[in-house]
């Protein structure tokens, strides 16, 4: 199974590399979204309060992640999906997609972080905690969004459906991530955030487990 997953992840990477426009498109999406935010709030460097910085950052990451992950079941048409159905188990397909999308979301989050730091200033005091939180947040986003994009793809996959199905499911993850990230920005001691990190991890585990159990039923239909 591990071998199957690694081959499937390689396949995702190769596909992404062949159609570079999709990847470049989403990267440009992040950069322009940050720039629009910067212009709209009219903030000179370092002039923006840290809760606002935090909220803007996570909102942008949320929307970019929704857009990036939404295509994970769309870009492959029916015939090819039937082919995967015959050669791979649904469990390894969902796991490989979740792992791949975690990486993709993490890349988006890091890029967003970089652009934010350059043009809006970097108020984060505890870089280690902030990065750990980004990794956990990317895992949670990718687990829930991959499953929801699978559901939306069965329902004619329009963008509205993807958004309304995923937002309520993702809110617990988003709220925890925003709280931890605020603690990291204020440079609070790790012991303050420990229980929040554990709950974020637990929510991720619940969502990922639900996706793992339910995906075979979705895949079969």
């Amino acid at each position: 199974m591990l071998k199957e997953i690694s081959i499937l992840i390689q396949k995702e990477l190769t596909l992404e590399w062949r159609q570079k426009y999709a990847l470049n498109g989403i990267l440009l999406y992040v950069v322009s979204a940050v720039f629009i935010t910067y212009l709209s709030v009219g903030a000179k460097q370092g002039n923006i309060s840290s809760p606002t910085w935090n909220a803007l950052y996570w909102i942008i990451i949320l929307f970019s992640a929704v857009n990036a992950v939404a295509k994970s079941f769309v870009q492959e048409h029916q015939g090819r999906q039937l082919y995967y159905y015959m050669i791979a188990s649904p469990e390894s397909i969902i796991l490989s997609k979740i792992i791949y999308n975690t990486g993709l979301t993490l890349v988006l989050a890091l890029l967003g972080y970089g652009v934010f730091s350059i043009i809006l200033g970097n108020p984060v005091l505890d870089q280690g905690l902030f990065l750990l939180n980004l990794i956990l947040g990317a895992m949670g986003f990718s687990a829930s969004l991959t499953m929801v994009s699978g559901i939306a793809s069965k329902a004619g996959n329009n963008a509205t459906l993807m958004a309304i199905l995923s937002f309520p499911v993702i809110i617990p993850i988003l709220l925890m991530a925003i709280r931890i990230s605020k603690n990291a920005m204020d440079g609070l001691d790790w012991s303050v955030s420990a229980d929040k990190i554990i709950s974020l991890f637990a929510i991720n585990a619940i969502v990922a487990a639900a996706a793992y159990i339910l995906f075979p039923y979705l895949w079969r239909s």
């Binding site: 929801v148 559901i151 929040k196 709950s199 619940i206 487990a209 639900a210 239909s221």
Partner: peptide
């Protein structure tokens, strides 16, 4: 029925931490 059932279970799994865990923090 099938896709509704899948989303129903998935949403419930996300709903439980939402109402039982987060408000207590």
């Amino acid at each position: 029925a099938r896709i509704g059932a899948i989303y129903n279970i998935f949403a419930f799994a996300a709903f439980i931490p939402l109402i039982f865990v987060l408000p207590r923090l």
